[in-house]
Design a protein around this nucleic acid. Sequence first.
DNA 1: ATGATTGTGTACCATTATAGTACTATTTAA
DNA 2: TTAAATAGTACTATAATGGTACACAATCAT
Lengths: 154, 154
Amino acid sequence: MLRLSKLTDYAIVILSFMAKEELQGHTAVEIASVTGIAVPTVSKILKLLVNAKILSSTRGAKGGYALARLSENITIAHVISALEGPIALTECSISQQGCEQASGCSIRGNWNLINQTIHNALASVTLADMVKPAPVPALAWKQEVLIPVASLYR
Amino acid sequence: MLRLSKLTDYAIVILSFMAKEELQGHTAVEIASVTGIAVPTVSKILKLLVNAKILSSTRGAKGGYALARLSENITIAHVISALEGPIALTECSISQQGCEQASGCSIRGNWNLINQTIHNALASVTLADMVKPAPVPALAWKQEVLIPVASLYR
DNA sequence: ATGATTGTGTACCATTATAGTACTATTTAA
DNA sequence: TTAAATAGTACTATAATGGTACACAATCAT
């Protein structure tokens, strides 16, 4: 489904929460309780975000995490690469020496274009955008069938 | 990594091959030998593409597969959804009743925007585009480190 | 100083998804 | 009727993901 991993999904939820009080710090435990995600999992995610310089951390009592930059300067593309590595749809797009597929692959250049386009799309949305009130739902939404979340996340 | 599954990757290689002689039919065995992908795997992929109306098939002796439409009318978005289901980065983007995440999720509308953008990017590239000679590689490419393919696909 | 609090790093396990395979049924041309 | 081809179903092994546990390091309050 071309989908993000759960961890990335969580990361964005966590960051959205933190973006609401930009300057304030939060502990892993606090974030876990607010978001409903298990503490060890939250820690794991926060650590990755710190490594990617998206969050800053202070250790020890009274420590915690805070955004390292303003939410306008944090893009979704950045968050995704922090959690999942470089954004690329195919293996052979990451390195270029890629595909030795006999005849099929004079395609690399074109894949590269697609990857670039997608990267741009993701880089054009910032955390600040995510926190803004959602635009009015399109008409189509209203006709959709409702499904309980439990069934989605198995 | 936001990556496509191998099967989808294969599918695009297969379709690219078929797009070179638009009108001609090919058997699963033939396609397998040209692309180097195992026959059962090829069959599986072809079947999915037939279900998605991207290919047409004729059974029996002298049967085989052919593009159901001109390659200009087959988009990458179409191929991806055939193999992986609806294109959406998060679970809650598929249905809308989605996320009951306590506080984090007034975000759906915004995710929807991202998904739409990405879908547009993928829908703007056709099979015909993929078969065209690749544009001149960007400068950056030349500086990349080469990695043997084997190490990529484990 | 000492202990409580909080992040860091590493390693591990269970579950799930993916890729691949095998087998049988169905269709059609010669 | 037989051979060639697709269609469908079910199964299995491998890899990736998500989640957990535990020992360590840093900092603050007392």
